[in-house]
């Protein structure tokens, strides 16, 4: 079954009178449980593509389907439901809420879902991510690696089908980066999780089952 399907996906910007294509005519389908990395040089459009696939950015042309549903037709409530139930995000900047503790940062995701928190899954995640003893700490009191682990826990707490990761190791040292990638690989394998990872680093990209290389907004 196809987790994500993109057809004729294009994003263009106007700069003065010049039209710039950030993403151009991309056709893409990703199976459920697949680990795909999108790589390429800086400015090639990989982050723009990821954002369109995740519904964070509306395409100029084309459509994105998740689980067979065209997310471009979703209203705000449906988009929110999609993000709650089916999608998880991890970013290079972690995007944790600075006034919330690690625990609150993770739990807030499940509160949006309006479902009871799966406490066993929560315990397993924080144990696995080695942040069980840091749950009462604020992001400013955590290291970069710990912050990214909290972000992963937050992304996975609602057991999403798809995880979008935008340069998740960009701000980490190599040891921490390896650890995070190992965790992502394990969670992907164990939970049939679809992972779409954007990175400019070819070594990291190679950890994925399929590598998509972008150049000037197009997939090669």
């Amino acid at each position: 079954m196809k987790a994500i399907k993109a057809s004729d996906l294009t994003k263009m910007f106007l700069q003065g009178e010049e039209t710039i294509y950030a993403v151009k005519d991309v056709f893409l389908s990703i199976e459920q449980g697949e680990f795909v990395s999108i790589t390429g040089t800086s400015g090639c459009g990989k982050s723009t593509l990821l954002h369109m696939l995740a519904g964070l950015l509306s395409p100029t042309k084309g459509k994105v389907e998740i689980d067979g549903e065209d997310i471009g037709r979703f209203n705000e409530r449906e988009s929110a439901k999609l993000r709650c139930e089916k999608i998880g995000f991890i970013f290079q900047q972690f995007n944790l809420i600075p006034v919330m503790t690690a625990r609150e940062n993770i739990v807030i995701s499940s509160l949006f879902k309006e479902a009871k928190l799966d406490e066993r899954w929560f315990a397993e995640l924080v144990e696995r991510l080695s942040i069980a003893d840091r749950l009462s700490h604020f992001p400013s009191e955590l290291s970069g690696g710990q912050m990214q682990r909290v972000a992963i826990a937050r992304a996975l707490i609602n057991r999403p089908k798809i995880l979008f990761a935008d340069e998740p190791t960009g701000n980490l040292d190599s040891a921490n980066a390896d650890a995070i990638l190992d965790i992502l690989s394990e969670l992907h394998a164990e939970n049939n999780l679809t992972v779409v990872l954007v990175t400019h680093d070819p070594e990291i990209a190679e950890k994925a089952g399929r590598i998509l290389v972008m150049d000037n907004g197009e997939i090669k």
Binding site: E76, R77, R83, E85, L96, I97, I108, F112
Partner: peptide, 11 residues
């Protein structure tokens, strides 16, 4: 931060 809430499913 508000964008993050919406990313996490907050309306």
């Amino acid at each position: 931060q508000y964008s993050t809430y919406r990313l996490l499913g907050g309306t």
